[in-house]
């Protein structure tokens, strides 16, 4: 768009120009609202058949059987939940450790390289994670991690059964790596937003660095850190390719983390383009709708927590 500045210009013409430009941007901003609305509508419409047919039992039925036209999503809900929680329980302490290291300990010259390298973890495509998970991580889990776990913790039901490599444990591990960058980035911002006076006060009272972190920083940053956790959880729930490649894709509910499982996103990825009849497609759509609803809610809560803290934090890139 070229606009020639004229020295003498009728007032009305440039007002018209400004108004129309404003209107153009406004239309696109509204289009964004429209897009989200359309998304909800399409997903609802797509899953309508399944919603009517199965109702709430869709969530509690463990039997997914396309041949007999019976669809229960419980194994997928379970797989998604367990693999994500496992990922979070590994990623949270690690991310918090990195964030605290960066903000409280690292010298200036280390700050940028370390943040950059951790952010690179977020840049690697999901499918490459999957490839690595399938050919590097899963074999390592089978030959090294699972024998050790079953030897020392074999009495727990979580670590029993044959060591297959692919399964819930590998999925959890790979998800942990994948959500570390976002949890780290947001915890870092949140911790940096803690006023220096809080730190100084703790130190002045004779606290060691760890005591300062425990008594002054963590309590102050609590709601923001919760936001980081929720965002990480949302990321883990929706992650598709890497999980599909390592979780084992078996719609069963097993207590053992060694056993193969299935996740909501994976079943969509595997079966959506093969769904041969309307109800099948609709059941998969309903899983998509659930995924959409849950991640939307998690993100909503997370942003709410982060927005209250500092406006800028919410903008941290994944």
């Amino acid at each position: 768009m070229t606009i020639r500045p004229n020295l003498i210009r009728p007032q009305s013409s440039h007002q018209w120009q400004d108004q129309s430009f404003r209107l153009l941007t406004l239309v696109f901003a509204l289009a964004m609202l429209g897009l989200v609305g359309l998304m909800v509508l399409e997903l609802l419409q797509g899953s309508w058949l399944s919603l009517l047919r199965f109702g709430w039992s869709f969530l509690t039925d463990a039997d997914w059987d396309p041949v007999f036209e019976n669809f229960g999503a419980l194994p997928f809900l379970y797989g998604t939940l367990i693999s994500s929680l496992l990922a979070l329980s590994i990623a949270l302490p690690v991310s918090l450790g990195i964030a605290l290291f960066l903000t409280e300990i690292a010298p200036q010259w280390l700050y940028r390289p370390i943040s950059f390298v951790v952010e690179l973890l977020a840049a690697i495509p999901s499918v490459v994670y999957g490839l690595w998970g399938l050919f590097v991580l899963a074999p390592w889990v089978r030959t090294h991690l699972q024998p050790v776990l079953s030897r020392f913790f074999g009495y727990l039901p979580f670590f029993q059964g044959p060591a297959l490599g692919v399964g819930m444990l590998s999925a959890g591990l790979i998800l942990a790596v994948m959500i570390t960058p976002i949890v780290t980035a947001i915890s870092r911002e949140v911790i940096m937003a803690v006023p220096t006076s809080q730190r100084e006060a703790a130190l002045a009272l004779g606290a060691t660095r760890w005591e300062m972190i425990r008594l002054a920083i963590l309590p102050y940053a609590r709601s923001g850190l919760l936001g980081a956790v929720l965002l990480g959880l949302g990321r883990a729930l929706g992650e598709t390719m890497a999980v599909t490649m390592v979780i084992g894709n078996r719609p069963e509910i097993a207590i053992s983390l060694f056993a193969p499982g299935y996740s909501m996103a994976s079943v969509i990825a595997n079966e959506f383009s093969e769904a041969t009849y309307a109800l099948y497609l609709s059941a998969l759509m309903e899983i998509g709708l659930l995924l959409f609803g849950v991640t939307m809610l998690l993100n909503f809560l997370a942003r709410l927590m982060l927005w209250r803290l500092t406006g800028a934090v919410a903008g941290t890139r994944e």
Binding site: M32, L33, V36, M39, L43, L231, G234, R235, L237, G238, E239, T240, A265, I268, A269, G288, L291, F292, T295, M296, L298, N299, F300, A302, R303, A314, G315, E318
Partner: peptide, 12 residues
């Protein structure tokens, strides 16, 4: 909404 959209799973 824009922030929330960032978190929608790409498969959806």
């Amino acid at each position: 909404l824009n922030d929330v959209l960032t978190g929608i799973p790409s498969i959806v």
